[in-house]
Every structure is written in structure tokens, then in C-alpha cells.
């Protein structure tokens, strides 16, 4: 399986997560969002970039409650809750935001 990004086919797994994290470019998120019928705004990118930085530092995609806490601390309390995250990514931060960010499915995602 694969997705078309900038004229290249990038491999994804059966759930649509990017097979190789290093192949990620911002257009990956745009293309995936389009497939889900969604437009990405500034708030979406803020979260996508946050996830990429978290992964860079810890080599894992954070579990949702870890994510909300970390976001609350870095981006402000009004954003550090699952309501905010689900408004941005209705399919769930794990299923959507991590996927758009090129991360694997979160560890601890039960």
C-alpha cells in the first residue's frame, strides 16, 4: 500500500501509517487530510509539529493522556485537553494526528 505525495509513492501499513518515518514531508499530512476530507489549519500544524518533536526526543508516539498533559504545559491549558484535540482531529489524535505526522501508532494506545 502507498500514498502519492509530490509524485512519489510512499509506503504505508494496512492502517495507513507511514512505513518509514524518514520519508515524511509536510505534504504527507496534507495528502492524508485530504483523503479524510479535512483541511489543515494552523492549529493542526501546531499539533503535528508538536508530535514530531516529541517523537524526535523520545522515540515514541505519546499516549493520549501523556499528550494532553505535555500540550497543556507547552501550548497552554486551553489546548491541553482531549476535547480540543478531538475538535481538531475528530478521528482521534492517535489515529489522525500521529498518522499525519508520520509517526507509528502510539505506544500505550489501548
Amino acid at each position: 500500500m502507498g500514498i502519492e505525495v509530490n509524485g512519489k509513492t510512499l509506503e504505508v501499513d494496512e492502517e495507513g501509517y507511514l512505513a518509514d518515518l524518514s520519508t515524511w514531508v509536510p505534504e504527507v499530512a496534507t495528502v492524508m487530510a485530504k483523503e479524510d476530507g479535512q483541511e489543515l489549519g494552523e492549529d493542526h500544524w501546531e499539533l503535528i509539529n508538536f508530535l514530531r518533536e516529541y517523537y524526535e526526543e523520545y522515540q515514541i508516539a505519546p499516549a493520549i493522556r501523556v499528550l494532553t498533559k505535555a500540550i497543556g504545559k507547552k501550548l497552554g491549558k486551553d489546548k491541553g485537553n482531549s476535547k480540543y484535540l478531538y475538535e481538531l482531529f475528530p478521528y482521534g489524535p492517535a489515529k489522525q494526528a500521529c498518522k499525519y505526522a508520520g509517526l507509528p501508532k502510539p505506544t500505550g494506545c489501548v
Binding site: 526526543e57 523520545y58 499516549a63 501523556v66 500505550g108
Partner: peptide, 10 residues
Amino acid sequence: SSTYKALGDY
């Protein structure tokens, strides 16, 4: 190894 640094968050 850097994942051990995330344990505190968990």
C-alpha cells in the same frame, strides 16, 4: 534509550 526519558511523563 531516549524512550526511558519519557517514563516520567507516563
